[in-house]
Design a protein around this nucleic acid. Structure first.
Lengths: 200, 200
DNA sequence: CTGTGCGTTGACCGACCGGTCAACTACGGT
DNA sequence: ACCGTAGTTGACCGGTCGGTCAACGCACAG
């Protein structure tokens, strides 16, 4: 079947890198083709449009993120909760060392730029976020079952908060030039205030 | 002095609207000129570049936001803290009714799209965010002085968290199609978990 | 050996992009 | 009455954008 030189994958991975280092609007199809050493006709053989490429990039990151989340260790639910913060921190640290600074969240960047512009892309991103959130929510529910959540804290809302907080912290780090480590620290703080004292 | 037909202001206000409803990359200078009924030469009489226009739009929103924050009522620091959430909620509700949905934060949208692309714009946005954060921090410190902050909660970090949370919640609402009211509710929740039980 | 179809190539396209410019208008100061 | 100047106008520009296309290479099935 789809076995040749792996051109499509090369395009997607190259695009992922370019989109992180700049933005959707400032990365042209020509840029992608040059960086991936692919001719434009080939590009349009695999992707009907630039927007579809963006969706493929979203899928790539989604897969990578979910893999990393499910691989996160932690015996107790509280540990797993902090493991989420660690996982996000690790990802951001990776981007930081690749690009020399925090460059934002691949999902958040595209969501901010394009969700008012392209409805199908917004849907795509919304379902990617929903998968994140479901993953988080499962852990939050386990935390509640373990009784480590403070009274009155709703696990579903906590999951949503965690996601929002991550997005916001990453965005602020990107614009303010803060480090990925600070982002992770703030996420750990957020988790801690939702847990009973002495939990973990 | 600068008294004519108020062309410059019309350009900025029109751009603010267009940028919110779409994105920087998808709004052309021609779009702005058409919507503002201004010829392109006039545009470039007032702005040396499209990027400078974006900065002017940022300044417009900054002024509006700071006005609204300082006008927020609330006798106690805890009330003022919730007043911040209300103010942000009100602004988002306004956008929601203007555009028919949550369209994101004017600062956050531009920050996500352009802070890896244009350094001067990133600086501009960073200092705008810094002003927000200072405003928030002042209120958080007052809250600490009043003893309503939970033990171990650092007011400066809380201010940063509040800002991040607002950005994240607004972004998620934009992509997920949630309402401004839900955003505000989540912000109130965040504030509450940082306050002693029974405060307010 | 030949047909079939995926992948590739490079030339090509019209639209639109951000930005420029010289000429013109209108008004306030003298 | 004159001038300087802020503002306005519309034509113009080179470059780049996303996207198209006909022709070609080439592996594999028959």
């Amino acid at each position: 079947m789809g076995r040749t030189g792996g051109t499509r994958e090369r395009i997607v991975r190259t695009s992922a890198r370019l989109l992180l280092s700049r933005s959707y609007g400032s990365v042209s199809v020509d840029d992608v083709c040059t960086a991936a050493d692919v001719r434009k006709g080939s590009f349009y053989h695999f992707f009907p449009s630039k927007a579809e490429l963006a969706k493929a990039v979203v899928d790539l990151h989604t897969e990578a993120l979910l893999d990393r989340l499910s691989a996160a260790p932690g015996a107790s639910a509280a540990e797993r909760l902090h493991g989420v913060a660690d996982a996000l921190g690790t990802i951001q640290t990776g981007f930081e060392s690749t690009f020399g600074r925090v460059v934002g969240c691949p999902f958040g960047n595209l969501a901010a730029e394009l969700s008012t512009v392209d409805d199908t892309l917004r849907d795509h991103l919304a379902s990617a976020f929903a998968r994140w959130e479901r993953e988080f929510a499962a852990i939050c529910h386990r935390a509640q079952d373990d009784g480590v959540l403070r009274d009155g804290v709703d696990p579903d809302r906590l999951a949503h908060s965690l996601l929002a907080h991550a997005q916001g912290q990453i965005l602020l780090a990107k614009v303010g030039g803060h480090s990925a480590a600070e982002v992770a620290a703030m996420l750990h703080d957020l988790i801690d205030v939702h847990l009973h004292e002495g939990a973990v």
